[in-house]
């Protein structure tokens, strides 16, 4: 059984974002790069599925600049993935181009399940898993919080609006986009980190170039400064009545 996990490298959530001096991008020098948090759930679920199926392998793949992304893939190898491949793309790709590059790599493989995170926390596009599935002509499920392997198919639970859940059966192969709550991702152990150094990290060039992207970002801006906070003084009843009055009469949101 071949299990694949698509991961993305993103700046740690604690990162303060600065714009580049020309305003054409974000200055990420010195950024701590991590595996997209939702992708950790994807890796964990892949490792759990491997543990239930003798002979199964887990391969972690990612697009991006190879030297930088390889670090993230090493972390996934240290968590227990068997192999990794970096699909080298020095310049950023949009969701469509990213998914096509992943699909080009996967099309002559025999995946049983392809796990991804439900979204990447940098651009929150939430698009690559579905596009990847469509490019490979296989079904997908997003925002998956429960996963059960049933041989020819999988049963998943996905979260939709208002706390409702859909229970869906997908014929394999399929793309599964993991949500928080699917599992508790393991940490890379010290022996895992040592072993990861000997594992194969393949490098291939991406089938897509930055110019194949159809969506482009420009004119980056930081959020406008908010006016300073008005601290309401006095005892609780006075604070509360002032607040309610302000919300109704000053800013008129109630």
């Amino acid at each position: 059984m071949e299990i694949y996990v698509c991961v993305k490298q993103v700046p740690d959530t604690e990162t303060k974002i600065k714009l580049s001096s020309d305003g054409k991008g974000v200055d990420l020098t010195g950024t701590k790069w991590v595996i997209n948090p939702y992708d950790e759930f994807a890796i964990e679920e892949a490792l759990k599925l491997k543990a239930q199926n003798a002979g199964a392998t887990v391969t972690v793949i990612s697009t991006g600049p190879k030297a930088q992304v390889s670090e993230t893939l090493r972390t996934a190898l240290a968590m227990g993935a068997d192999e990794a491949a970096v699909i080298d793309s020095p310049e950023p790709l949009d969701s469509l181009a990213t998914a096509k590059a992943l699909a080009a790599f996967l099309k002559d493989k025999k995946p049983t399940v392809i796990f991804t995170g439900k979204t990447a926390i940098d651009d929150n596009a939430m698009a690559v898993p579905q596009i990847l599935a469509d490019q490979l002509q296989i079904p997908h499920a997003t925002v998956v919080s429960k996963f059960e392997f049933k041989g020819e198919s999988v049963l998943v639970e996905r979260e939709v609006e208002g706390g409702s859940r859909e229970i869906i059966e997908l014929r394999l192969p399929a793309v599964i986009a993991a949500n928080k709550g699917l599992n508790t991702p393991r940490y890379a152990s010290l022996p895992g980190i040592m072993k990861a150094k000997k594992k194969t990290l393949q490098e291939v060039s991406a089938s897509q170039k930055s110019s194949d992207s159809k969506v482009v970002y420009s004119d980056y801006q930081l959020p406008a400064d908010r006016p300073s906070c008005k601290i309401l003084s006095g005892e609780v009843p006075q604070q509360v009545s002032e607040l309610v009055k302000a919300l109704r009469e000053e800013v008129k949101v109630i």
Binding site: I17, K214, V215, V216, L222
Partner: peptide, 18 residues
């Protein structure tokens, strides 16, 4: 226009060859 990094900044979004 869309927020990036959960709103820590935003960028103009336009389309090319689409």
């Amino acid at each position: 226009r869309k927020p990036l990094f959960a709103g820590k900044c935003s960028a103009k979004v336009s389309f090319q060859n689409s």
